[in-house]
Design a protein around this nucleic acid. Structure first.
Length: 485
DNA sequence: ATTGCCGGGGC
DNA sequence: GCCCCGGCAAT
């Protein structure tokens, strides 16, 4: 599912257990608050706003590394062994392992696009792809703790990492997985110390923090295919610590003026209101994402999205409820894991924050969302690795489409979150490829063909039988204008 | 073999 | 302009 974690025993004969978490978008991570934990962000990896994974190291209090036994009930170890108190309760409920790489993947050394595996000698690594999430974590932690952990202390803690062998035992760790998932989930709400790349402990206003992240990540609000609408940006559930729930809510509201704000707010409210991690059953919410080119709008109701499409994209009278059903073509249904909604935001810019890149394309949602993290399609993620390779956004959302012709798009695109992003800091070769296309130099000479984009074109999406639905360019055998690359 | 779309038409 | 399509290159 959304969280990928690897739980394994130290190959060393010692009882020391190490959990390697690659934190993917979708899930919040939470730790038993009783267990003091220091979370460090491994800043060496990437820019905060990038999709690239950010690593967090969890060090259990006492300066020792987290000692977790592979057995579910293992209570031994420091930290009281209560690291995953909810494991049993949580069950595997949302662990739909669709086979995608991002989900509950424990062992595979197989590169999961977009997913950065634990670093060598990994400890408890949280791969947080969502910038917003990072901020959130930091915020929440500070809020809970009311203070930051001294830098020195953190460093000391971090020094006590116990390297773990990379080979993992693939089998029979369902319970472990569950525990890991639970931990990940709970992390989002529990107090954590986030040390963003050795940032000064100065209590920087959380709002600023996430703001920065957002600005960096979403400077081009629509740049991400899988991103949410610009308004969504505020959604990142990274309320500033000092803010009360209400305050956060208000903030969100104030920053969002449309339906999205509503929806998002609702979800975020849900997330923040209750400090205690909730059960997953409440975490999934069906949302509707506009697939219109350059539009990332996500609404909670189909009628809302239809109205949006009708009025905004189709230019129809907003007052009229008349619908010929055409709107259906332009949105897809997605399931958003509210637990990781925040994270999702970060993932919105799955690939790279293409601040410089062209805006997302028509059916971006999938490709971007992926990033969205958020909204990533679980199944498609893993399956369509090729697409994902570009950004590897892990999204929590499961995209479903009701439209047959849309199906291909949704699935594929979803996976390839960030596919369209052409960010300055592109990390994917594919992106570069696209980039080249837009480069003037590349274009010029006759004879140089525009590299084929990865996006499905009208022909493929709709099929010959629905040729009338193609964009004109496709009909004329010209470069597709709808599913641009 | 399929697909995307350039280049070159006809109207 | 709009529309088509031969044919090539990428997949």
């Amino acid at each position: 599912m959304e969280s990928k974690y690897i739980f394994e025993k130290s190959s060393i004969g010692t009882s020391v257990g190490v959990a390697d978490f690659s934190y993917r978008t979708g899930r919040s991570v939470l730790l038993d608050s009783r267990v003091p934990v220091a979370v460090e962000k491994n800043s060496s990896v990437l820019p905060a706003y990038t999709q690239a994974p950010v690593f967090y190291k969890l060090v259990m209090d006492g300066g020792s590394t987290a000692e977790v036994k592979s057995e579910r009930t293992s209570s031994s170890g420091r930290g009281n062994g209560r690291i995953f108190p909810d494991v049993e309760k949580a069950g595997l409920g949302d662990q739909k392992d669709t086979g995608s790489c991002g989900i509950l993947k424990r062992t595979s050394p197989t590169p999961c696009p977009g997913v950065t595996r634990s670093l060598p000698g990994s400890f408890l690594n949280l791969d947080i792809r969502n910038p917003g999430k990072q901020a959130e974590l930091a915020s929440s932690f500070r809020a809970a703790q009311g203070q930051n952990v001294p830098q020195a202390e953190r460093q000391a803690l971090s020094s006590s990492h116990i390297p773990v062998p990379r080979n993992r035992n693939p089998s029979g760790h369902a319970d472990k997985e569950v525990m890991a998932a639970t931990v990940l989930t709970s992390l989002s709400t529990s107090p954590l110390v986030l040390n963003p790349s050795s940032a000064p402990p100065v209590p920087e206003p959380a709002s600023k923090t996430w703001k920065e992240v957002l600005s960096a990540s979403y400077s081009s609000s629509t740049s991400g295919n899988w991103s949410w609408d610009a308004s969504d940006q505020s959604v990142p559930s990274t309320p500033s610590p000092p803010l009360s729930n209400d305050a956060s809510k208000n903030f969100l509201l104030s920053s969002q003026g449309d339906d999205v704000s509503e929806d998002v707010t609702e979800s975020t409210h849900f997330m923040f209101e209750d400090p205690i991690p909730r059960k997953r059953k409440n975490s999934m919410k069906v949302m509707f994402k506009c697939l219109w080119k350059n539009c990332e709008k996500v609404l909670s109701t189909s009628s809302g999205i239809q109205r949006h499409i009708r009025t905004v994209h189709l230019g129809r009278n907003s007052d009229s409820d008349y619908s010929d059903g055409e709107e259906d073509f332009y949105y897809s249904e997605i399931e958003v894991n509210m637990d990781s909604l925040t994270e999702g935001l970060s993932s919105l810019t799955p690939t790279s924050p293409t601040t410089a890149g062209p805006p997302p394309v028509f059916p971006p949602p999938l490709s971007d969302v992926s990033r969205s993290e958020h909204t990533s399609v679980d199944g498609s993620q893993s399956h369509t690795s090729s697409l994902l390779s570009q950004s590897a956004p892990s999204t929590l959302c499961h995209i479903r489409t009701d439209h047959a012709y849309q199906g291909p798009v949704a699935h594929v695109r979803t996976v390839s979150i960030g596919e369209k992003r052409q960010p300055a800091a592109s990390t994917h070769t594919t992106v570069n490829k696209n980039h080249a296309v837009i480069t003037p130099a590349a274009k010029a000479t006759p004879g140089t063909r525009k590299p084929r984009g990865e996006a499905k074109k009208c022909r493929k999406v709709y099929g010959m039988e629905k040729r009338d639905m193609w964009c004109t360019a496709c009909r004329w055998k010209k470069a597709c204008q709808r599913f641009t690359d």
